[in-house]
Amino acid sequence: MIVWKDLLDGTLVRVLPEYRTEVPYFSAVYPTSHRATAKVKLFLDLLSATFAMEPEWDRALGLSEDVA
């Protein structure tokens, strides 16, 4: 996420193209309460929608799940 522009413009190059890391995941831990339920659900929905998409740099660098 930090260096994707540098990878795309060629400033940085991949030195171990065969090496792949595991797909990161998020976990949300929150207390159960009736007051926060709607806010927590909306926040979790936002996180899911934001991070469920494939990153632009993965597609551009040929690292998408379709290619693997």
Rank of each mutant, 00 (worst) to 15 (best):
I2H: 13
I2E: 15
I2P: 06
I2Y: 10
I2K: 15
I2S: 14
I2L: 15
I2A: 15
V3F: 15
V3S: 13
V3Q: 11
W4N: 08
W4I: 00
W4K: 07
W4L: 01
K5A: 12
K5P: 04
K5D: 14
K5F: 02
D6S: 15
D6C: 01
D6N: 13
D6W: 08
D6V: 00
D6M: 11
L7Q: 01
L7S: 01
L7W: 04
L8Q: 09
L8H: 08
L8P: 00
D9Y: 07
D9I: 07
T11C: 00
T11M: 00
T11H: 02
T11I: 01
T11P: 00
T11W: 00
L12M: 05
L12F: 14
L12T: 00
L12R: 09
L12W: 04
L12Q: 03
V13Q: 05
V13G: 02
V13E: 03
V13R: 06
V13I: 09
V13W: 00
R14S: 12
R14I: 14
V15E: 10
V15D: 08
V15A: 04
L16H: 09
L16R: 11
L16D: 13
P17W: 02
P17D: 01
P17C: 01
P17Q: 03
E18G: 03
E18L: 06
Y19P: 00
Y19Q: 10
Y19A: 13
Y19C: 01
R20S: 09
R20F: 05
R20W: 05
T21Y: 14
T21V: 06
T21W: 12
T21K: 08
E22K: 12
E22G: 11
V23L: 08
V23K: 10
V23F: 01
V23M: 07
V23A: 07
V23E: 13
P24L: 08
P24T: 06
P24K: 05
P24N: 07
Y25L: 03
Y25D: 04
Y25N: 03
F26A: 14
S27G: 09
S27T: 11
A28C: 10
A28V: 15
A28E: 02
A28I: 15
V29M: 04
V29D: 09
V29F: 10
V29L: 10
Y30M: 11
Y30C: 08
Y30E: 05
P31W: 00
P31G: 08
P31Q: 03
P31R: 04
T32H: 08
T32R: 12
S33Q: 03
S33E: 04
H34M: 09
H34L: 14
H34R: 12
H34V: 13
H34I: 10
R35W: 05
R35K: 11
A36D: 15
A36K: 05
A36S: 15
A36P: 00
A36Q: 10
A36E: 13
A36R: 08
A36I: 07
A38I: 11
A38L: 13
A38H: 11
A38P: 03
A38G: 06
K39Q: 13
K39Y: 10
K39H: 10
V40H: 05
V40F: 09
V40E: 03
L42S: 15
L42E: 15
